Each structure stands twice: as structure tokens, then as C-alpha cells.
Simulated scan of single mutants.
Amino acid sequence: MSQRSPYHPRRILPAVLLLVPVLLLGSFASAAAKDGLRVEQVETRLVDDTFFMDALLDYRFSSEALDALENGVPLTILVQIQVRRVGAWLWEDSRVDLQLRYAIRYKPLSERYEVYRLPGDEGRSFVSRDAAMRALGEIADLALIGASSLDADTDYEIHIRASLDIEELPLPLRPMAYLKPSWKLSSGWSKWPLTP
């Protein structure tokens, strides 16, 4: 009596059927991973006694967020910036703790995108969404801290995080935004050296 091969089609088929959903989930997850916010570059320079910062952030909103933008819903980005001692404990105070808010909106009548810093509603205007998104991710000449207020023998670093501010969405959108992962967009904290 011959023994059935472990590679018999009747044994392989159930395994393949179980594997297909896993592969599909993996492809959806990799597609979703393309969405998100990322801090790509941070540079600092010392001018006279003040440290200034330039930063480049990459904003890849989910399709739901982009649909809302195209329908006239402004999207607000919260950028948190801290200057901390290298190796500081969590409970140590930051030397700097800034919260910057930026917004992007689409104006259907003029078919233009606007990027502006809050508070206020006046900003730069763009014909294309890509150009507006690039401008949204640029922080230039931000005064951080006076060099004389830092300890000369201590190394410092910048901690920076960007996130989509769900609280600024119109009230009817908020419950869905709290429940769906596609709205919970954040870069997470990243660290960059504070150098002259």
C-alpha cells in the first residue's frame, strides 16, 4: 500500500487557500504604509547668538484625507518641536517646546490650493496639489533658542513630530476620523542634532 505524498494537491489546496488572505493583507498593508507623515531633513545654524532651524517634511495623506481636502475640508498639521539634552530622561524639561500649526485647503471656485500658518487664514496659493504639499512640508528660518541659554559643555538635539490634527476637522468628520486608521497620521518623534 503506497503512502500519500505530503505534496498531494488535496493537501496543498487548503494551505494555499489559507495563504491567499495573508498575502492580500500584506499587499494592502504595504500600500497603506505609503501613506503617512515623515520628517525627512532637519538642519540648524547659529546666527549671532540664535539657533535657526530649517526642516523638510513629507506629507502623504490617505485617500480619505485627500478626498476631504478636494471637497473643501481644510487639513491641519500640528508640528511639535523640542530642544532637549542628549540622553535626557523623559521627565526632564525641554529647553524649547514649540507647537506650530499649518493648514492646507482647496478652493473649488478658484481651483487653487492654499497653505498657511495658523492662526490666520492668509497664505501662499498654488495651482497644483503637489506644489502645495511640498510647501506645507517646508519650515524655514525658525528661531529656536539662544546659544547663550544652553550649557556649553552639553550636547543637545531637536525632537520633532508632525501629525494630522483630527480636532480641527469639521464636527461631522471627527467620529469617523477617530475610528479609522487612515486618519491617524503621524510621523512619530525623530531626533536630530542641534549643531552650529
Rank of each mutant, 00 (worst) to 15 (best):
S2W: 09
Q3S: 14
Q3E: 15
R4A: 11
S5T: 09
H8L: 05
H8D: 11
H8K: 07
P9S: 08
R11N: 13
I12F: 08
A15T: 10
L17G: 09
L18H: 01
P21S: 01
P21N: 05
L23K: 05
L23H: 05
F28H: 11
F28Q: 14
A29C: 05
R38T: 03
R38P: 04
V39P: 01
Q41N: 13
E43L: 08
T44D: 03
L46E: 01
D49Q: 09
T50S: 02
F52S: 00
M53R: 02
L56R: 10
L56G: 08
L56P: 04
L56T: 08
D58Y: 10
R60N: 14
S62R: 02
S62G: 04
S63R: 11
S63N: 09
E64H: 05
D67A: 15
D67H: 10
L69E: 06
E70R: 15
N71M: 07
G72N: 06
V73C: 02
T76P: 02
Q80R: 15
Q80E: 14
Q80K: 13
V83N: 03
R85Q: 14
A88R: 04
A88P: 05
L90G: 12
L90Q: 13
W91P: 04
W91D: 09
S94T: 00
R95C: 03
R95Q: 10
V96C: 00
V96M: 08
Q99T: 11
L100M: 13
L100G: 07
R101T: 13
Y102R: 15
Y102F: 13
Y106S: 10
P108R: 12
L109T: 06
Y113G: 06
D121Y: 07
G123E: 06
S125P: 05
F126Y: 15
V127T: 15
S128T: 15
R129E: 14
D130W: 06
D130S: 14
D130N: 12
A135E: 15
A135F: 06
L136C: 04
G137P: 05
E138S: 13
D141L: 10
D141W: 08
L142E: 08
L144F: 05
L144G: 01
G146Q: 12
A147H: 09
L150H: 05
A152Y: 07
A152T: 14
D153H: 08
E157D: 11
I160N: 00
I160P: 03
R161D: 09
A162S: 15
A162K: 02
E168G: 01
L169K: 04
L173R: 02
P175R: 06
M176D: 12
Y178D: 09
L179T: 10
L179F: 11
W183L: 00
S186F: 01
S190R: 11
P193D: 03
P193Y: 08
P196G: 11
